[in-house]
Structure formats: C-alpha cells, structure tokens
Amino acid sequence: MPAAQLFSAGLERAINQLIKLDPESAANLYKLSAKHLEVEIAEFPHALVFAFSDQVHVLVREKEAEGYQVDCKISLSLQSLQRLQDSSQITSLIKQGYLELEGDIHVAQAFSQLLKELHIDWEEQLSKFTGDVVAHTVFSAGKSLFEHAKKTANAVALTLKDGAMEEKKLAAHPYVVEDFCRQVNEVRSATERLDARLKLLETQREQN
C-alpha cells in the first residue's frame, strides 16, 4: 500500500475540513490560488507539495525529482520546524543553515497566514449535531473546567514556589537573583575599567 499517499490523503482531508469550517479563510486561500509550495523535511523520505486552488491539494514527491516546478521550496529539519513557530527566527535560521528557502517567500507566508488565521467556532460546529442548548452547556462546562484547572495549577505552582524559596531555601527569590546579576555586572564593568587603566599605565611607563 502506498503509505505516503495514505498520509497525504489524511493531511489533505484534515486541512480542507478545517478550512471549510472557517468561511472567512476563503479570502486567504484565494491569494494562494494556482501556487505550489514544496516542503522538504530532512528526516522524511519524500517531499510534500501543497498545491492551491479552491482547496489545498497535498502531493507527495520524490526528493530531487526533476521536471517539477514550484513557486516556493522550503527545506528544513524537524528540529527547525519547531523553531519556525516563532516567525521572527526565520532569518536567523536561514543564516545558521537550518532552513533553506528558494523562490517566492510570499507563498510560504501566505500559507502560514492561512493556517494561523483559522478561527473555528467549535461551539457552532457542535450545535449542528446536538442543538444550541447542549452545545452551549458542553462548552460552558468545558470552559469552567478549564478555568478551574488553570486556577488550581497556578495555586499549586505558587505553593511549590513559596515552599522552595521561603521554607526549604532550595531556590532564590527572583529579586535576589536580579540583584546578584546586577552586582556581577557591576564587578565585570569595574574589572574591565581596571584592566583598561592598567593597560594605559603600562603603555605610559613603556613610553617613559
């Protein structure tokens, strides 16, 4: 069974379903119409090509295959894929050689924008199957549960922090650390000043 095609079929279906759930994403998809973006991940045996029309088509391509033209090609490793989540790191990743980009960068940016700006009203989606009342109740309960879990987690973190800093003295308070860092900086500056002054005095002595 062509496993790569099974994977691409699943990915294509997932992307298109998500796009369909956000009617406003059509405008972002339209910007990419007729464009092809190739993504080559070092650890994978095949490259993926995203071809755009009124849908996203995910194609599998042999690496280094000849006779195919794409508008933009990105080559990277799984490790740098994680770092790509911070778009401000793109330039430094390219400089460090973790990311290679050929062609029109706007295609990659537009695809990234399409995925980032997907806003899906999951409550609305659920209501299509369960009705408004059930959907609203489920999401309200989920929201309350999430808030409660968040508060509990914060409280536990605060307790652990106080215990580690105040009772067991395992960690220093951030103000103490900050003050320590400031003092280290002052010592470093003073040392550098002293070093510069010593060098100046040595130079003067050699001249005399």
Partner: peptide, 8 residues
C-alpha cells in the same frame, strides 16, 4: 491511493 500516486 493508486490514483493519488498517479496524480502525484
């Protein structure tokens, strides 16, 4: 999947 491979 065979047809997908053809399209690829």
């Amino acid at each position: 999947l065979w047809k997908r491979f053809t399209i690829d």
